[in-house]
């Protein structure tokens, strides 16, 4: 089956290799100035506990200089779903669409083995490609991550173990969609929607609760953001710890303005504080393991469903 898989998916595998190569080349080219600036400004010395002065100027300057580039790298979030769209979805949909399943599934290799072998080989290739892409991004972002941490979604989603896990999930999701919809375009659309929805739901509603968030109370005027934390919520509370409603905050601000006082100062005098719920930067690998495990588990479930369905597929 290895030859069969290679022959049928050669274009996709070549495209994936090309994509990785381009990514590596781009990373190599653009990282040199970042690295140079990092060393020129001795930014490593600004890591906590901050040992040198001027970090409060140098760090934002460095971040601003490369911020655009770093933001644009977030587009790589779409990489994993490509495995689902261009490898997974056509795997069964094309066979069903063109009728070639009647040729492929009536050979000595059973339908189930055909599906499992192809899926396993392509899954291995997908995981390798995903891991390579993730490694490239991690290497590229390293100077930035040291300062900013990488647990917030903008970096978490394109680094570490989750990238190959997402790609694997997208791949098998595509295979299942192909079996259900039997048309390549429909299967691709369904894969995109289901993948996007799952990722959104997990990021918004599951990942923040992998471990109980930590809380920190700071002065209302503080920025309150420790370096590298993923801030989940940031609310004003009064001295008794009760949350300040938006209406009450508006009232206080208006009151201060009428009285000719700076609203910030006024809020501090009221004894109001800010309560920040966050996931600390140090939980990055725990969260990576948990989320990657979640997606690999979902992938395994989808494979089981697909194998069960493909046997019962009446065509």
């Amino acid at each position: 089956m290895a030859w069969v898989t290679w022959r049928q998916h050669r274009p996709q595998l070549v495209a994936a290799a090309g994509l990785l190569f381009a990514l590596a080349a781009a990373a190599l080219g653009t990282r040199i100035p970042i690295e140079a600036a990092f060393h020129r400004e001795s930014l490593a010395a600004c890591l906590p506990p901050a040992a040198r002065t001027g970090c409060d100027i140098i760090v934002p300057h460095f971040e601003a200089e490369f911020g655009g580039l770093v933001t644009s790298v977030r587009v790589l979030t779409v990489l994993p779903v490509l495995a689902g769209l261009f490898v997974g979805a056509p795997l069964l949909a094309r066979e069903l669409e063109l009728g070639t399943y009647r040729f492929a599934w009536t050979q000595g290799v059973t339908r189930r083995r055909w599906l499992l072998s192809k899926t396993a080989l392509l899954a291995a290739a997908t995981v390798i490609a995903g891991a390579a892409a993730s490694a490239i991004v991690m290497w590229w972002r390293a100077p930035y991550d040291i300062l900013e941490g990488r647990i917030s979604p903008s970096s978490f989603d394109i680094e570490g173990l989750v990238v190959p896990a997402y790609a694997l999930f997208a791949l098998v999701l595509g295979v299942l969609a192909g079996l259900v919809f039997r048309r390549t375009v429909a299967a691709m659309t369904a894969t995109l929607l289901a993948f996007g929805a799952t990722r959104f739901l997990v990021t918004e509603f599951v990942r923040p609760h992998f471990l109980a968030p930590l809380h920190r109370v700071v002065l209302a005027t503080d920025s309150g953001r420790g370096p590298g934390d993923w801030v989940l919520s940031d609310t004003l509370v009064d001295g008794g710890g009760r949350q300040i409603t938006a209406a009450r905050e508006d009232l206080a601000v208006t009151h201060a303005q009428l009285a000719g006082i700076d609203p910030h100062t006024y809020i501090v005098t009221l004894g109001w504080k800010r309560l920040i719920a966050y996931q600390p930067a140090g939980r990055f690998w725990d969260f990576q393991l948990l989320e990657a495990g979640l997606f690999v588990g979902l992938a395994a479930l989808i494979v089981l469903v697909t194998v069960w369905l493909v046997r019962r597929t009446a065509t």
């Binding site: 069969v4 022959r7 050979q107």
Partner: peptide, 22 residues
């Protein structure tokens, strides 16, 4: 099957290889 479905993008030798390997 009706219409003798085969992989149209395969070469003849590859089609034979497919069946040999399956």
């Amino acid at each position: 099957a009706q219409g003798a479905p085969l992989y149209r993008s395969f070469r003849v030798a590859e089609t034979i290889e497919f069946v040999r390997r399956t």
